[in-house]
Design a protein around this nucleic acid. Sequence first.
DNA 1: CCAAAAGTGTTGGTTCTACACCCATGT
DNA 2: ACATGGGTGTAGAACCAACACTTTTGG
Lengths: 229, 229
Amino acid sequence: MSHTYEYPRPAVTVDCVVFGLDDEDLKVLLIQRGVEPYAGRWALPGGFVRMEESLEDAARRELEEEAGLRTSHLEQLYTFGAPERDPRGRVITVAYFALVKLSAHHLQAATDAREAAWFSVWDTPKLAFDHADVLATALQRLKGKVRYQPIGFELLPPKFTLSQLQRLYETVLERELDKRNFRKKILAMDLLEELDEVEQDVSHRAARLYRFDHKKYKQLEKAGFNFEL
Amino acid sequence: MSHTYEYPRPAVTVDCVVFGLDDEDLKVLLIQRGVEPYAGRWALPGGFVRMEESLEDAARRELEEEAGLRTSHLEQLYTFGAPERDPRGRVITVAYFALVKLSAHHLQAATDAREAAWFSVWDTPKLAFDHADVLATALQRLKGKVRYQPIGFELLPPKFTLSQLQRLYETVLERELDKRNFRKKILAMDLLEELDEVEQDVSHRAARLYRFDHKKYKQLEKAGFNFEL
DNA sequence: CCAAAAGTGTTGGTTCTACACCCATGT
DNA sequence: ACATGGGTGTAGAACCAACACTTTTGG
């Protein structure tokens, strides 16, 4: 079956930059391409937008299909449309930006033929198409946004220590933070619920666990409160 | 001539939200539609993306064609792709956000058949398609961005008074600012060049004119300086 | 001389930064 | 007992918000 139009039309895809955090580093999910162009190269998960689905639905579908994962945070990043960005012809891609709790989705294998794997964002293989630009844009967005929106929590398990949280910020922002000042500031926002639990199986004093209080944040947000750093 | 593809493809357009500032208010540029759908309704300037041009080039071309204007500041805003946003079928639009010095482009007539006009952003007619959403998104972006990027200057003539600048911020942010604090803060950034000129033809004490120093800003930016409010 | 907007400093409160030691736990 | 990271307070500097009067100019 084929489709005919009076004027030529670009193809439209979505691509997803999915970030996860493990003990070592900030990671991005990549898929190894099986076919030309760029066969064998690693690329961002993504694919063509179907006629009846929204852009965001397309992004969610591709993530499910290619990596078997669901994400709590998904937002549109930027649309890349340089005429020569795909050697097959004019392809415009709407890039999305996702955060997942890597602790949950441990080393998920791709459900279709292709390989999926997590790479350190500071050390990825050479990427297909203009995906290096897309990744760079996503990193910039993450770095900017993490400071004034409480999205960092989407990268951590539901219960976390303040040190984990601090390491997250240090990793994303690429600079060290002062422990005492960091704790003061984040606790002063009154968005963390202090639990009666401590971490397990560590060979030193166990740290207290906290949980991010989404409900409280929504309330404060309405009242004009602004999360910051 | 017609074009055939194996799979159906959405059409892709660009739409531009162009802001300008005059003595009264923040304005947005609208075009009256001549044809169905939404014939007679006002809409954002825009049109189909050609196969050989980039998205940004398309936005610039449409602005030139539909309103005869060039803009200093043009950035991508968001991509709108709900399946039912255009009654003619699947049309994905990449929205752009532009700022122009209204003082220069005085009441420019459209170069093609359609009417173009400036409307107060707080009081527009009913818009075609989902353009009200697009406009709302653009306003939100402007409000957010004006505080941490010196883009407000793109709305003012090259030489302006501090009161004009303050009014700009008050209009965009929808709140009053303290005159002394505002002046202190903006002058402390050392980004304004104080000219040996004052405004003309006012029936009260004439205010000193200033110019924004783009070069100095670029330098400071590289050195890690952050513009803020 | 009146109207209109330009221009100008200080104070008190809040927030930010820098900084070092003791504590709890597991090996 | 030692190694590892957990947890805590203070002081000085910078920044922010609130606030009112005098000056200049044109009509």
